[in-house]
């Protein structure tokens, strides 16, 4: 196996200040939101790397930087050893770009309602001046729809079928890596399994690599080979699913696992987690989790923990032990 994506010290800061004039009049400083802070990880070819986290964890921001929708503020994204931000050869950049595709969360918003399905799914090829004859039919059949569906408009399909169309579009340019941003969270339960199975099959058949972004721990456990847990823009733990779910090392991961509702524990009484996610504009000092952490000591308030290995797990906690 070789490394397909390596992300190093990735940081993204958003300027969420009020307009300049309001700021001057109200005498307010600039407000900067650090959505992603110093995140590093690698994705091996033909595996599924999952990013989990709650809202504000920066998981979608990382996905957008990976596909080029956002520029990193600091750090770099390298794909097959090519740093897209620094690479000057336009042809290489274009080649790598077409190797990365994305599946979006909302199947109702991700397809242009005025376009025919056939035009939607072949756009990645047509936009690059490629030949798309017969492509739509092939892709539609690949995702379990009929070739004639190319003539229809998105509103003629159900949510699950639309997400299949989104998958077909992502496959059009023969990508190596697909970033899946909450691909099933807008779908009904009975349809979710269809889409997840389809994605698994396609991965095996086409040798795809997924970056799978989700807040749903059960889905992540089913899909992922490696899971990265994000909290407030920081990667706090990285492990394979079995290790993560049986012996979570970071106190946040432990809290998250305990809080997630589970179907196999009927009538479970849980001690609900304490506190809420802090304001990302003024994150806590040191370890971002320390105000909610049962293990927190003085060092946690002062020093941000580095990711380190505990067994096979990478964890960013001063107190994590094997």
């Amino acid at each position: 196996m070789s490394t397909l994506v390596s992300i190093r010290n990735l940081t993204r800061v958003f300027d969420v200040s009020k307009p300049w004039l309001n700021r001057v009049l109200e005498n307010e400083p600039k407000r900067l939101l650090t959505a992603v802070s110093d995140v590093s990880f690698e994705v091996e070819e033909n595996t599924v790397y999952a990013l989990v986290g709650e809202s504000g964890s920066g998981k979608s921001t990382i996905g957008k930087m990976l596909v080029g929708l956002l520029r990193p503020s600091e750090g770099e994204v390298e794909i097959r050893g090519v740093n897209l931000a620094a690479e000057s050869d336009a042809k290489t950049v274009d080649q790598i770009r077409s190797d990365i595709q994305m599946i979006f969360q909302d199947p109702y918003a991700s397809l242009n309602p005025r376009w025919r399905v056939g035009d939607i799914i072949t756009e990645p090829v047509v936009a690059r001046g490629g030949d798309a004859t017969g492509l739509a039919a092939k892709l539609l059949e690949q995702v379990g729809l009929a070739a004639e569906d190319a003539q229809k408009f998105p509103h003629e399909f159900s949510g699950g079928q639309r997400q299949r169309i989104g998958v077909a579009r992502a496959l059009a340019s023969n990508p190596k890596l697909i970033v899946c941003d909450e691909p099933t969270s807008a779908l009904d339960v009975s349809v979710q399994a269809q889409v997840l199975n389809l994605m698994s099959d396609l991965k095996d058949d086409l040798g795809l690599t997924y970056l799978f972004i989700s807040h749903d721990l059960t889905v992540v456990r089913h899909m992922a080979d490696v899971i990265g847990v994000l909290y407030l823009g920081r990667l706090v733990e990285e492990a394979d699913p079995d290790a993560l779910f049986t012996t979570p090392k970071h106190p946040y991961t432990q809290m998250l696992l305990a809080a997630a509702p589970r179907m196999d524990q009927i009538g479970r009484e849980v001690e609900p987690p304490k506190g809420e996610i802090p304001d990302p504009i003024n994150p806590p000092t040191g370890c971002a989790f320390h105000p909610r952490c049962p293990l927190a000591t003085d060092v946690c308030k002062q020093k941000r923990p580095e990711l380190r290995y505990v067994g096979t797990t990478r964890v960013a906690c001063h107190h994590a032990e094997g």
């Binding site: 929708l69 077409s98 994305m102 909302d106 756009e123």
Partner: peptide, 16 residues
Amino acid sequence: KEYVQAAKMIGRTGPA
């Protein structure tokens, strides 16, 4: 909306 993001990601230019 996500369909515009999808088009951006594909590399469509602003006017398109």
